[in-house]
Every structure is written in structure tokens, then in C-alpha cells.
């Protein structure tokens, strides 16, 4: 299951071992123009929220920041200074 890019499978024993590779790209669903794929974004969102409501998944929020700190927050993410989720309050 690959998320950032597609690995080079040259010479890999994909056929010999009956292996498969799949790519995950949420943006692809938005741009697909396929209403069923698009609707699954909302459905997965609901299912994820149900897991959170049941206490089964913890998003590990590191820090809640203010709107005017988003720019600094993005720089901190880029600099690998953040472990866990950064969330910003708008209002």
C-alpha cells in the first residue's frame, strides 16, 4: 500500500510471489468526477468519526493553535518539529 509515490518494481518478484500493490490518494477521489468515489469520502469520514465517538481511535492532537499561528504551524510541520496533529481554531 503506497501513499507518497509509486515504488520502482523493476526486478521485484511481483509475479513469482503473486504480490500486488495499491495506491492511496484521497485527492484522486475529488478529481475523479465519479460521484460514488466522491461520496465514499463522506462515508469514510462518518465511519472514522464513529470510531472516535466510541473511543476506538485517538488522533493524538499535539497542540491547538490560533488562526494567526497557522503559518508558523506549517513551517513547524515542514521542519519536523511536530509529532502528532496540529489543529487551529478559527473563531
Amino acid at each position: 500500500m503506497t501513499i507518497v509515490d509509486v515504488p520502482d518494481l523493476t526486478g521485484a518478484p511481483v509475479f513469482d510471489r503473486g504480490l500486488s500493490m495499491d495506491v492511496v490518494n484521497l485527492g484522486g477521489a475529488h478529481l475523479s468526477g465519479n460521484p460514488f468515489q466522491q461520496a465514499d469520502l463522506g462515508k469514510m469520514n462518518s465511519e472514522m468519526l464513529a470510531l472516535a465517538a466510541a473511543g476506538k481511535v485517538d488522533p493524538l492532537i499535539e497542540k491547538v493553535i490560533f488562526f494567526d499561528q497557522i503559518k508558523d504551524g506549517l513551517q513547524a510541520i515542514k521542519d519536523h518539529r511536530v509529532i502528532g496533529k496540529l489543529v487551529a481554531e478559527i473563531d
Binding site: I3, L26, G42, A53
Partner: peptide
Amino acid sequence: YQLARIPDNVSYETAASLLCGALT
């Protein structure tokens, strides 16, 4: 199409942290 209702016992902050990375 992308929307979900946030359950009453889930905060806006928690819901906001369960989207891009979590849905991936």
C-alpha cells in the same frame, strides 16, 4: 459529498484532526 456529521461527543478539534491523514 465530502461531509460527515460530527457526533455530539466528538469535538470540532478532534474531528479536524481525523481528515487528511486519518482518511488516507
